[in-house]
């Protein structure tokens, strides 16, 4: 069975190195560093070096892991890793700048939608398993945040699918990218601009940055679900947050800027990777750092209302416009 082994090795390479775990982890940590640096500059501080998140990560990895007596050890330790695995796998569904996705399929938009919930569920289950009442409040907020951003996200996806597919069912990112290669990026079709704005507003809530960090509000509920975490599992959670930054901004790039083509070959891949990273950095600064710098934390019920009225409204406008052929 050499074929099977070869396929397996190839898949393992995809998952672990590129465009999976290693790529997303490094990219995410760099983005987190850029975020912190730019935020500091906006607040007229010097800020940490851009590689500071790497130092933080490795330092946390070396610390002792304290499992509280009230916790359920197996779930407590496995939860962050499940989140990491699903984030690494998500990247495999993204076709990058004209290249096929590593794992393209007929309806991967829905798969992505569900994979995106897994890191949040991992935080919730892990926090819940740690047994702290602070975590109990934190997971409640995390879940409400999730319900809040899921509606606009679904509407954005459906609008994109309708725009690309017309009267046939297209839920595949590969097809969406191919369509953009032929017809120009979705961002430049004016009917999709409200949807793009909606997705930009969904990103900070999904990642959990201020003002949408109600779940981990340090000043109120002491990091909520992460309160009892320490050592390696905490490092993995921090890594997950950084990876989410990268994956979510990459999702925006694929969905709305997939029309950019840099050609094939090794050069195309390298250029594509660099361009992807540059776009992600710009998006990070735009929709996370900037909003973080100028706002204070919302209450959870305000967050919910904001997403179900303003953001969902934006996405709905796009869906209706697209539906009537604009």
């Amino acid at each position: 069975m050499p074929d099977f082994i070869l396929t397996f090795l190839k898949t393992a390479l995809h998952v672990l190195i590129f465009p999976g775990l290693l790529f997303v982890a490094i990219g995410g940590l760099l983005l987190a560093g850029i975020d912190r640096k730019v935020l500091a500059r906006m607040q007229r501080r010097i800020g940490p070096p851009i590689v500071q998140p790497f130092f933080d990560f490795f330092k946390l990895m070396g610390k002792e892991t304290i499992i509280p007596n009230a916790a359920r050890p197996a779930i407590y330790k496995a939860a962050p890793l499940i989140g990491t695995a699903s984030l690494a796998i998500m990247m495999l569904f993204f076709p990058l700048f004209g290249h096929q996705a590593a794992w393209g399929s007929t309806a991967d938009l829905i798969v992505i939608l569900y994979l995106m919930t897994i890191p949040a569920v991992a935080i919730i289950v892990g926090g819940s398993a740690s047994g702290s009442p602070f975590a109990g409040i934190g997971i409640s907020r995390e879940m409400v945040t999730m319900m809040a951003y899921e509606l606009p996200l679904v509407l954005v996806f459906l609008a994109a699918a309708k725009k690309v597919g017309g009267t046939s069912l297209v839920f595949s990112l590969d097809s969406i990218t191919a369509w953009q290669q032929a017809n120009g990026c979705l961002l430049f079709h004016w009917a999709m601009i409200p949807a793009a704005l909606a997705l930009l507003l969904v990103i900070p809530a999904e990642v959990g940055t201020q003002p949408f960090d109600v779940a981990e509000a340090e000043t109120e509920i002491c990091e909520g679900p992460l309160i009892e975490y320490s050592g390696a599992p905490l490092a993995m959670y921090k890594l997950n947050t950084a990876m989410k930054m990268f994956v979510m901004t990459a999702l925006f790039t694929v969905l709305f800027l997939g029309g950019i083509n840099l050609g094939g070959g090794v050069l195309g891949w390298v250029l594509g990777g660099l361009l992807l990273f540059a776009i992600c950095a710009v998006l990070t600064i735009l929709c996370m750092t900037l909003i973080h710098a100028v706002t204070a934390r919302l209450k959870v019920e305000h967050l919910f209302k904001f997403y179900w009225t303003v953001v969902a409204g934006l996405a709905l406008v796009s869906l209706v416009l697209v539906w009537f052929g604009l």
């Binding site: 409640s140 907020r141 879940m143 319900m147 209450k299 959870v300 019920e301 919910f304």
Partner: peptide
């Protein structure tokens, strides 16, 4: 009553 934030809205 875990999801009071949601229920309030």
């Amino acid at each position: 009553d875990l999801f009071w934030g949601f229920k309030k809205d």
